[in-house]
Design a protein around this nucleic acid. Sequence first.
DNA 1: AATGAATGAGATTTCATTCAT
DNA 2: AATGAATGAAATCTCATTCAT
Lengths: 193, 193, 193, 193
Amino acid sequence: MKKNKPKYKQIIDAAVEVIAENGYHASQVSKIAKKAGVADGTIYLYFKNKEDILVSLFQEKMGQFVERIKEDIEKKDNASDKLYSLIQMHFRQLAENHNLAIVTQLELRQSNKDLRLKINDVLKGYLGIVDEILKEGIEEGLYHPEINIKLVRQMIFGTLDEVVTNWVMKEQRYNLVSQTKDVHHFITNGLIK
Amino acid sequence: MKKNKPKYKQIIDAAVEVIAENGYHASQVSKIAKKAGVADGTIYLYFKNKEDILVSLFQEKMGQFVERIKEDIEKKDNASDKLYSLIQMHFRQLAENHNLAIVTQLELRQSNKDLRLKINDVLKGYLGIVDEILKEGIEEGLYHPEINIKLVRQMIFGTLDEVVTNWVMKEQRYNLVSQTKDVHHFITNGLIK
Amino acid sequence: MKKNKPKYKQIIDAAVEVIAENGYHASQVSKIAKKAGVADGTIYLYFKNKEDILVSLFQEKMGQFVERIKEDIEKKDNASDKLYSLIQMHFRQLAENHNLAIVTQLELRQSNKDLRLKINDVLKGYLGIVDEILKEGIEEGLYHPEINIKLVRQMIFGTLDEVVTNWVMKEQRYNLVSQTKDVHHFITNGLIK
Amino acid sequence: MKKNKPKYKQIIDAAVEVIAENGYHASQVSKIAKKAGVADGTIYLYFKNKEDILVSLFQEKMGQFVERIKEDIEKKDNASDKLYSLIQMHFRQLAENHNLAIVTQLELRQSNKDLRLKINDVLKGYLGIVDEILKEGIEEGLYHPEINIKLVRQMIFGTLDEVVTNWVMKEQRYNLVSQTKDVHHFITNGLIK
DNA sequence: AATGAATGAGATTTCATTCAT
DNA sequence: AATGAATGAAATCTCATTCAT
């Protein structure tokens, strides 16, 4: 399977670097090939086309992203801690990988609708985790039993995503992870006293 | 001033239609000109270049968008009603103008970083309104006095934006405005019982 | 007749200025109109098209140029003095009108073959003067009776033209008129001792 | 080095043909590509842009032109013969290559100032040869020791250039090379008996 | 498996000219 | 006579993808 060959990952990592450095639109296949140390044509032995590099990049990186969150959450034994952990891991992973943060928050959003639909597929894994936490919280009697789960999961994702995007746009000049507590409080308690 | 000439608005409205129908990248200047009923060259009497059409489109439309929200909010006399009104107006305006919703939520995000920086400028007006509501709510003793306003306004915007985007991506098959109550409840009270 | 109307000359003078300042290719009709203080459309009441402005410019300016040389030459009573006078007047007139020098030596040469054929027509008046001087010089027993007049007049024109062009390209940093004597000597005696 | 690849020369030769046939302004890159038997994009593997084709064309062709004159002159052992040889070679090479003559005498002059500055650089090689001949002629006691070399070389170039241009404009209907003797005589002895 | 030279479709923008007022 | 808003044709260059080696 191609995905295990070293060049597959090599090309994806090159793509992250190239896109982070040059921006989405200035990231030609030839630049990615050069950074990866392969010929242009070689790219097409591992990826169907340019879009496929980007989708694969997202799948690969977000797969790990989601996986690590899952692992971390398993250790917690109530919904609130799990939610806290989700937020913290979400922030931490992007804070630890600046290039990836730039690529996922800014550059990849410039892709067309088709690509973003595929990206959304990948995000389903993430939203699934949120769902689980919400259900658990309701069972535990912690969260309000009549919340609209589909809607709430969107709002939570929107909240976290916007916070990260702002941090990236501000050129990551402040500590993202230390906002975890405030964000957790907002999601849990809202604005009220 | 060119902005008052009918052709200026004619071209912007044509741009909204063309972009909503064809997508950002398939929206050639010639298509916009044709839809506006003018010659290609005429576009350049009113706009510096193609990007200028898009920036102007956003400024024009979002300017109105923000203005209407402001007007509506003025009528309310407490922060909670104002927040409710903000959410409702945000949803209603986009629900009433499907093409504009597609353009602002999906297509314009494909633009490059420069354009998005200009878009962010326009959004500052929106965020200013949120700020005001938050401060008022704190003064009224309704909202928690120690919330991080800069962070919270990001989260509120992220929440609303993501809800709208999901609705657009689901091809607007359900009623967006009727989600106002749930969204207001989430922002105000969070997840807890 | 249009050529006597003030706007006709106004437009031609504007064209000289605009071309000298901006170069041939950056001299749009609208720039010339603006400099002349008329509307774009007005240009077309006085000139058939853009090329016609340039041809007229050349005719008008070179007509005067040739006329002045003729007047000056009439005062001299032998071929050698006339040739000297021709060279001096050629240099002096261009030295006194920097903009015109730039336009005729550099910018107008960028025009296409058709325009240059028309320019050559205007130059026939100039070459006619040279012819007369040469014939007179032969009759006076001063110039060699077997020179090929058609060829020699080309060479004389080429000589003067190249000297002026070099002076313009060197940004007119030295005195052109003071080269008259050397040039006259070269044309008269050639290289030999 | 790309200059040795056959396609480099192939494209330059196609450019000469296309420009001679269609004129400078009607010589689109696509026409040159077609004549060269390559795709439009291939042009840009060998040349930076369209102007670069023209500069390279001039450098390549004038480089050979000057080189051949140098070779021929070396065989002669006095300044007069060398000057004769220079004139003859100048005329012969352009007479033998009608298309090149059209391109260098008429079409390339329509280029903008930048291109012409680069062209002038190439011409320096030519002017250097003239300089050498003049110095040698003075040493041999043949040419007048007080001639202004910088000025004279301009005049010689202007003379030859104008003769060739006239011949090209007259559509090469007479024999250019057979004018060598008369031109040499004019340059050497001037007009006098 | 890998290369990289070659391909060729496609879009923004300029500007000379027109013509209704 | 004068205006100037509107027209619309036309060309360079990029870059994802292919395929012969």
